[in-house]
Structure formats: structure tokens, C-alpha cells
């Protein structure tokens, strides 16, 4: 993982690419909440296990152990979703199961060896909350744009505003436009500071 201001920026863009499977899957508030909360559980479990393991465990073995903890966490979370909402499980199980193999979670599974690594790992643990919030916001925003309303239960709203936004193509376009907007805001803020 890259460090420093430029490195941090590139790492952030890398994480956006890594998070894109979940952002594309979150097409409604319901799906966003399910994916976001499961992501938070899995990311936190993986990062916590990686932080708690002793350095003597070895990098490769530590990574495997932390990733396995993430896989177990997603299995338990998916079982809970199945108990609470069997239809949502049938609809989204393949997308839920991909969570431990996304790049942010695999990045969090890296075993910290030095003190600097541990600080970065702690930061990553906190970043997980931001990623989960981004998934939920994406789901809500896409449903709002697609239908012009937010549904609280299945089968969702019947109105249509911009139906493209509920499709993967719409999600990718929305991510691109949001990233461009953020880039120009950051560039504007930097220009003002200078």
C-alpha cells in the first residue's frame, strides 16, 4: 500500500476500483444496507484478526488466517440475512459472498509487521466505516435517481425517473461522474488554499 499524500490519493482511487463490484451491486436502499453492513462486519473482522495476530505468525499465514476469518464472517452474516429475509438472500447471495474477496478487505488482511504498518492497519479499520457508508449512500442514491423515490420494503417503488441508474451501466457512469465531481472539488479547494 502506498503512503504519503500522492500515494494516499492513488491508494484511494485503487480502493474505489476495488469497491466497484459492491457499488455496482448496490442498486437500492435495501441492497445497499445489506451489502454495506455485511462489508463493515467482514472488513472489521478481517482487519481486527490481522491486527491481533502476532508478527511471528508470518505474513503469508497471517494473511490466510485473516482472510479465512473474513470468509467465516460473511458466511455467518449471510446466514443471518437468510433468516431475516430469505428472498433477499436468494436475490443477492452471490454478491454478498464476494465481499471477503474485494480488494479493500484483502488489503485489510495484510498482517502488520512494523509499528508504521500497525498505524496504517488501524487507519484501514476506520476507513471500513467510510466504505460501508459509501455503499449505502450509493444504493440509496441509485434508487432515488432510478425511481424518484425510496422504498422501505420489497418490491420497491413503481415510479420511474431515470431507470438506467438501476442498471450496472448507470452505476459505473454515476461512479465516474461522482469521482470527477470530487476531483474538481479537491482541485478547487487546493487552488483556494494556494
Amino acid at each position: 500500500m502506498a503512503h504519503g499524500s500522492d500515494g494516499g490519493r492513488f491508494a484511494a482511487w485503487g480502493m474505489l476500483v476495488g469497491l466497484s463490484p459492491l457499488l455496482v451491486s448496490a442498486d437500492s436502499l435495501r441492497m445497499g444496507l445489506a451489502l454495506g453492513s455485511i462489508f463493515l462486519v467482514v472488513h472489521s473482522a478481517t482487519a481486527a484478526v490481522a491486527l491481533l495476530l502476532p508478527a511471528s505468525f508470518g505474513k503469508a499465514r497471517g494473511f490466510q488466517f485473516a482472510l479465512l476469518a473474513g470468509a467465516v464472517a460473511v458466511s455467518l452474516s449471510a446466514s443471518l440475512v437468510r433468516l431475516l429475509d430469505p428472498f433477499l438472500f436468494e436475490l443477492a447471495s452471490a454478491r454478498l459472498f464476494i465481499v471477503p474477496f474485494t480488494i479493500p478487505v484483502m488489503g485489510a488482511a495484510a498482517l502488520p509487521v512494523t509499528m508504521a504498518d500497525r498505524e496504517v492497519a488501524l487507519e484501514r479499520l476506520i476507513h471500513g466505516v467510510g466504505y460501508a457508508a459509501a455503499i449505502i449512500i450509493m444504493g440509496t442514491g441509485r434508487e432515488l435517481l432510478a425511481s424518484g423515490a425510496i422504498s422501505r420494503g420489497f418490491p420497491g417503488t413503481t415510479t420511474a425517473l431515470l431507470p438506467l441508474m438501476s442498471q450496472p451501466a448507470g452505476a459505473l457512469i454515476l461512479i465516474g461522474l461522482t469521482a470527477a465531481a470530487f476531483k474538481s472539488i479537491i482541485a478547487g479547494a487546493k487552488g483556494q488554499r494556494a
Partner: peptide, 23 residues
């Protein structure tokens, strides 16, 4: 390409347009 669209934003937009055609 406008400065704010360079890099990841244009990659996502291009992928979105490919997705639109493929779907």
C-alpha cells in the same frame, strides 16, 4: 479530456458506456 475527468473518472465512464452497449 477535462482535467477532473482524467484517470479513474473517465475509466468508469467508458466502462459504463461499454456496459450500456453490451447489456
Amino acid at each position: 479530456v477535462p482535467e477532473s475527468f482524467k484517470g479513474e473518472p473517465i475509466r468508469f465512464l467508458s466502462a459504463g458506456l461499454i456496459a450500456l452497449a453490451f447489456s
